[in-house]
């Protein structure tokens, strides 16, 4: 058990016992390795369910949308806290309803990277600060954590929670000098034909399960545009044009809001990197408006704030 787990359990039990919160949203051990699941703890005695390790990649901000409890404790790593800020700015929850239990984050492990390097089914995992060990029938493999991080985590520059009321551990050093957008630049450099082909291939395996959308805290519309039938904005099958329309429209709905938490990519059953779309918009927001989502409760997001010097060269 890592000490973060102990601090989280102690904090949750304390907050619940004193009545400071009605429930705490955190992670518990998943039913299969490397798949910790969200868990709602309502009694101090249940706080022992909470865990913390490198498999808590789901974004918990997704679970506070429109909740009515007066006080909710929520475990938040850097990206979750940024999505909480976004939720607060978008009136999906009020700051006063939240007791944010921040966890300075060292990055989440990519279960696919680990599974691909193991010869059989992984039955157990355990970890130290810097290494993850996976065990299965007849094999044991140990990985440097840095080698098996989720792609977004290896590029993350906001690992410490941006808002918190409690902190489960010492702040971590932020990664410096990260080149966040090498992959986006590579796509930008392509010709339109190459780019069309590139996305055709990228999205070809998509089965339209919408796990990416459902995992995303930004995708909280009561009826998503893909589910509407009157009018039907986009076909519901696997025609490549419909698949592409779904992906790029969803990305636009996340423009200026996406924190690159990676929950969407993590959730995809076929391993599509749809973050490329949201990252392009993130890059544009940063370059054109100096905007990074979810860093402050004081600043209005780029897309709902007009400034006279906003770039508009593309309009004539």
């Amino acid at each position: 058990m890592t000490s973060t787990t102990e601090i989280l359990r102690e904090t949750a039990a304390r907050l619940l016992a004193s009545g400071a919160v009605e429930m705490v949203i955190g992670f518990r051990q998943g039913t299969i390795p490397m798949m910790n699941e969200p868990c709602f703890v309502r009694k101090p005695a249940e706080a022992g369910l909470l865990v913390w390790d490198s498999h808590c990649g789901i974004n918990l901000a997704n679970y506070v949308t429109d909740r009515k409890e007066k006080k909710i404790g929520i475990v938040a790593k850097g990206c979750d806290s940024r999505n909480l800020v976004t939720h607060i700015l978008e009136n999906k929850i009020r700051r006063e309803q939240l007791v944010v239990i921040g966890v300075p984050c060292r990055g989440m492990a990519d279960k696919r990277k680990i599974a691909m390097k193991c010869p059989g089914e992984i039955l157990r995992v355990h970890e130290t600060e810097t290494a993850i060990t996976a065990e299965g029938e007849g094999f044991t493999r140990t990985f440097e954590k840095a080698d098996v991080l989720q792609h977004n985590c290896s590029l993350c520059t906001h690992r410490n929670p941006v808002i918190h009321d409690e902190l489960a551990g010492e702040p971590v050093e932020e990664q410096q000098g990260v080149d966040r957008y090498a992959d986006v630049r590579a796509v930008e450099a392509m010709s339109p034909e190459q780019r069309w082909k590139y996305f055709e291939d990228l999205l070809a395996p998509c089965i339209r399960c919408y796990a990416c959308r459902n995992a995303c805290p930004l995708c909280y519309c009561p009826t998503c545009f893909v589910d509407e039938s009157r009018p039907q904005w986009v076909g519901k099958g696997q025609d490549p044009v419909d698949v592409r329309t779904f992906h790029f429209l969803r990305a636009y709905h996340c423009a200026g809001r996406c924190t690159d938490c990676g929950a969407c990519e993590r959730a995809c059953p076929v391993g599509i990197n749809m973050r490329l779309f949201t990252k392009k918009l993130e890059k544009d927001c940063l370059e054109l408006f100096g905007w990074e989502a979810g860093l402050s409760l004081e600043v209005r997001p780029a897309l709902d704030h007009y400034r006279p010097n906003d770039p508009n060269d593309f309009i004539r």
């Binding site: 339109p192 034909e193 190459q194 780019r195 069309w196 082909k197 590139y198 996305f199 592409r244 790029f248 593309f314 309009i315 004539r316």
Partner: peptide
């Protein structure tokens, strides 16, 4: 996305700018 440059264009035209509308169209 791979749409050719030029196929998608943006313009901001006031309802008073009829000549601009014609030119742009």
């Amino acid at each position: 996305m791979g749409i050719e440059p030029g196929r998608l264009q943006f313009s901001w035209i006031s309802s008073a700018e009829s000549t601009k509308f014609v030119t742009v169209a």
